[in-house]
Amino acid sequence: MEQIGLYLGCNIPLKHPDIEQSFRKILPELGVEPLDLEGASCCPAWGTAPSFDLQTWCAISSRNITIAEQKGVDIMTGCNSCFGILSEAKHFLEDKEMKKKVNESLSAINRTYQGTSDIYHIAQYLHSKVGVDAIKSKIKYSLDGLKMATQTGCHTLWPSDVYKIAEQNPYEPTILKDLCMATGAEVPHYSRLAACCGMGGMRSTDIEKSLKLFKEKLISIKEETDPDMIVTTCSSCFMQFDMSQLILRERGEIDFEPIPTFYYTQVLALAMGFDPSQVAAISQIDRSKIIAEMQSEQRLVKEVA
């Protein structure tokens, strides 16, 4: 079984452990053994060290990477920010000077950064290493006929030059679309496909501005595709869609019911037949109806002997 270092970040293990649980359920089924990176910390998030000192950022990121290096594995994460931060840090560390300085800092905690572990996002990993066909072969409930709007999230798209795996066209991302379609679902295009959801620093700095941006995107999704659910591979986007639709609805800024939102691996775990109370248990929007629909009898794929 292929081993990979599972880098959790903050939001997934602390706020949305059902997403973490969905990783832990689907990966072994797909032939991947996730190894825990014991003692891994925050990546560090954009608002922390990266906003204070480049070198401290690189030192904390590289500490996380060394945990994987010691195990001789690459890193996979489900959080776009972590993916972006770690990938960019790795990019900065290609500079000999920076690497030298960071290793001086790391020497105080008996660590050395080498640069041998690559950083993958779980969506990229599923798409390129596991493959759409392998995913299709593990689907228990076909999501045929369901309509999904995808939200890839910024930090796996740009800047494409620092990522190990880049979309063919980051302005028209297809990795998540392919993954969703592997469950049998329909994934229509909408014009603000690559637009920002407004989460992150923007939301904590000025929630009104954040919501303005979010609303524009949400309306594009609703009006142009009217989906059964929104599927994302970014934990931050997930939180924005899950929290802010309710706010807009409450304020009367939207006239439709909030669209259930899932992290992609939750959708996959449900399609693979895992228990919703473990893999899709925490959300503000009520998802019970759509989950029941997804795991309904008639969707069972007939086993081929």
Partner: peptide
Amino acid sequence: GGLDMLAGDKLR
């Protein structure tokens, strides 16, 4: 900075 494809073959 960029174009978005809209329904009806328009572009944003």
